[in-house]
């Protein structure tokens, strides 16, 4: 504790100081213990119980079922495809916004940050549903398309890969922008200015100086977006067709319709293995408190 350099404590805190000197980690552990116990009891133990349930009744058979069934493998591939599209889409759309946030004046930045976080306040079930209104056969987009004579028939915009990706990108964009912004805001802009002064064009200064320095944020966002996208349930169910069924929907069907708990648990364990490995990768390289730039700051 850095306060040890300070003079004149009452006796009570002198004792505290001695204890904390003898056991330097005691105070930290004491403060962490309630949260860690809670996470253990309501997250780790249930997950361990689920892993146990996946093996206990029929051994490895549920895993064999999933890994050899064409249907489940197809769902797995679809899920990965949608996650990749969503991640790339979010990065392409989020990068310019995060960049503008770093160049904006403080007052403008505050307003823009509020706008970026604003959608989070609206239930995501209802946000997906608003795309149903916009993209439907008689929705706003199709009214415009047919009204302006771009196409004589309405376009199939809903219940396909396009609508699922649009819906998921809209939901994950705030996370993208905040993650990118929290890295970009730490980049020393004078480096970019130095490049410009030495004759680099603005584009070249951006490409050779700013972009490489912002890459850690891009990688962090990549991992975070991909893991978040893996767990999506509502958006593909509302905006996708049968071809866009994602893994969470399949697990839901196995659990609540087929009532096959070992199979549902095994599918859950496989999903858990993927997300956990990505998270381990993330936490090796990035610090948690930088994650959302402290949400809205």
């Amino acid at each position: 504790m850095t306060v040890s350099t300070l003079p004149a404590y009452p006796a009570r805190s002198a004792r505290l100081k001695r204890i904390s000197a003898e056991y330097p980690h005691a105070l930290g552990l004491l403060l962490l213990a309630p949260m860690l116990s809670w996470i253990a009891v309501f997250f780790i133990f249930p997950t361990a119980w689920m892993i146990w349930q996946s093996f206990s009744e029929r051994g490895l058979q549920p895993y064999a079922t999933i890994l050899t069934s064409a249907i489940y493998l197809k769902v797995l591939l679809t899920t990965l495809k949608i996650c990749v599209i969503t991640t790339v889409g979010c990065l392409i759309l989020g990068y310019p916004v995060a960049y503008v946030l770093t160049t904006a004046r403080p007052s403008t930045r505050a307003v823009l940050l509020i706008l970026v976080v604003l959608p989070y306040w609206l239930d995501f079930i209802v946000r997906s549903y608003s795309w149903m209104i916009l993209l439907g056969r008689h929705g706003l987009i199709n009214q415009l398309v047919t009204g302006l004579g771009i196409s004589s028939t309405s376009l199939p915009l809903l219940y396909n890969l396009f609508s699922v990706s649009i819906g998921m990108i809209q939901i994950l964009l705030p996370l993208t922008i905040l993650t990118l912004f929290s890295t970009m805001v730490r980049i020393d802009r004078r480096l970019v200015d130095a490049a410009t002064i030495h004759g680099a064009s603005p584009w070249r200064a951006f490409r050779t100086v700013f972009l490489p320095l912002s890459l850690p944020g891009v990688y962090a966002a990549c991992l975070l977006l991909f893991v978040s996208a893996l767990g999506f349930y509502v958006t593909p169910a509302l905006l996708g067709g049968p071809e866009q069924t994602m893994i969470s929907q399949t697990i839901m069907v196995i659990a609540s319709d087929l009532l096959d708990w070992p199979l549902a648990s095994a599918a859950g364990v496989l999903l858990l293995v993927v997300t956990t490995s990505l998270l381990v990768l993330y936490s090796r390289f990035f610090r948690l408190d930088r994650m959302l730039g402290g949400m809205a700051r």
Binding site: L32, L36, I39, F42, F43, F45, P46, T47, W49, M50, Q53, L224, V227, S228, L230, G231, Y233, I247, S248, I251, M252, A255, W261, A264, S265, G268, L271, L272, T275, T276, L279, V280, Y282, S283, R287, L288, M291
Partner: peptide
């Protein structure tokens, strides 16, 4: 380790949390 745990608590897919907490 603590950071990874907190992050896992946040982004582990809801369906995993749901079926595991149900069985538990």
């Amino acid at each position: 380790v603590v950071n990874a745990l907190v992050l896992a608590a946040l982004v582990t897919p809801p369906i995993i949390k749901a079926i595991s907490i149900y069985l538990y």
